[in-house]
Lab assay of single mutants.
Amino acid sequence: PVYLSVKADNSMFIGNDPVTDETMITALNALTEGKKDTTIFFRADKTVDYETLMKVMDTLHQAGYLKIGLVG
């Protein structure tokens, strides 16, 4: 499974590897070998604001990742 996490300080990680807004999709493409039907499990600290969550989800959708599971 692929886990994308947003921490309380808005830092992002794919698994244990830090990513930025600019590198997130490139890292996901490498990890999933470009398979856009891969489910991305998205988790965020409860203090992360809604705007940040939606920005990340919008970026995922624009890149073609449509299977996003929200996890606690």
Rank of each mutant, 00 (worst) to 15 (best):
P1E: 09
P1I: 09
Y3M: 08
Y3L: 08
Y3V: 11
S5Q: 11
S5F: 15
S5G: 03
V6M: 12
V6R: 03
K7M: 14
K7R: 11
K7S: 08
A8Q: 08
A8E: 08
A8F: 09
D9R: 06
D9E: 05
D9T: 06
D9Q: 06
N10K: 14
M12I: 14
M12T: 03
F13M: 09
I14M: 05
I14T: 01
I14N: 01
I14S: 01
G15E: 07
G15V: 02
G15S: 04
G15Y: 04
G15I: 03
N16G: 09
N16T: 10
N16M: 09
N16A: 11
N16S: 11
D17A: 11
D17G: 05
D17I: 14
P18C: 07
P18K: 11
V19K: 01
V19Q: 03
T20D: 09
D21M: 15
D21A: 15
E22F: 07
E22N: 07
E22I: 09
T23W: 03
T23R: 04
T23V: 04
I25Q: 02
I25Y: 02
I25K: 02
T26G: 12
T26K: 11
T26S: 13
A27H: 14
A27Q: 11
A27V: 15
L28H: 00
L28G: 01
L28I: 11
N29I: 10
N29F: 07
A30H: 10
A30D: 08
A30C: 10
A30T: 10
L31V: 11
L31R: 09
L31F: 07
T32P: 01
T32M: 06
T32C: 07
E33T: 08
E33K: 14
G34M: 05
G34C: 07
K35F: 07
K35A: 08
K36S: 05
K36M: 08
K36D: 03
D37P: 03
D37L: 05
D37M: 06
D37C: 08
D37Q: 08
D37Y: 06
T38Y: 07
T38I: 13
T38V: 14
T39N: 08
I40E: 01
F41C: 14
F41L: 14
F41S: 04
R43V: 15
R43P: 01
A44N: 05
D45I: 02
K46L: 10
K46P: 15
K46N: 11
K46D: 13
K46G: 09
K46R: 09
T47N: 15
T47S: 14
T47W: 11
T47R: 11
V48G: 03
V48N: 03
V48E: 02
V48F: 04
V48C: 06
D49W: 05
D49N: 13
D49K: 14
D49V: 09
D49M: 10
D49Q: 12
Y50A: 11
Y50K: 13
Y50D: 08
Y50M: 13
E51P: 07
E51Y: 10
E51D: 10
T52E: 04
T52I: 14
L53R: 08
L53P: 00
L53M: 08
L53V: 14
M54I: 12
M54H: 09
M54F: 09
M54G: 06
M54N: 07
M54R: 14
K55N: 08
K55Q: 07
V56E: 00
V56W: 07
V56D: 00
M57L: 13
M57P: 00
D58P: 01
D58R: 12
T59P: 01
T59A: 13
T59I: 15
T59W: 09
T59K: 15
H61F: 12
Q62M: 12
Q62H: 09
Q62I: 07
Q62P: 00
A63V: 03
A63G: 08
G64L: 02
G64V: 00
G64T: 00
G64M: 02
Y65D: 00
Y65V: 01
L66C: 12
L66R: 09
L66V: 11
L66Y: 14
L66D: 10
L66K: 10
K67M: 10
I68M: 04
I68E: 01
I68V: 13
I68G: 03
I68Y: 04
G69N: 15
G69P: 04
L70C: 13
L70D: 05
V71E: 10
V71W: 07
V71L: 13
V71T: 08
V71F: 08
V71C: 14
G72N: 11
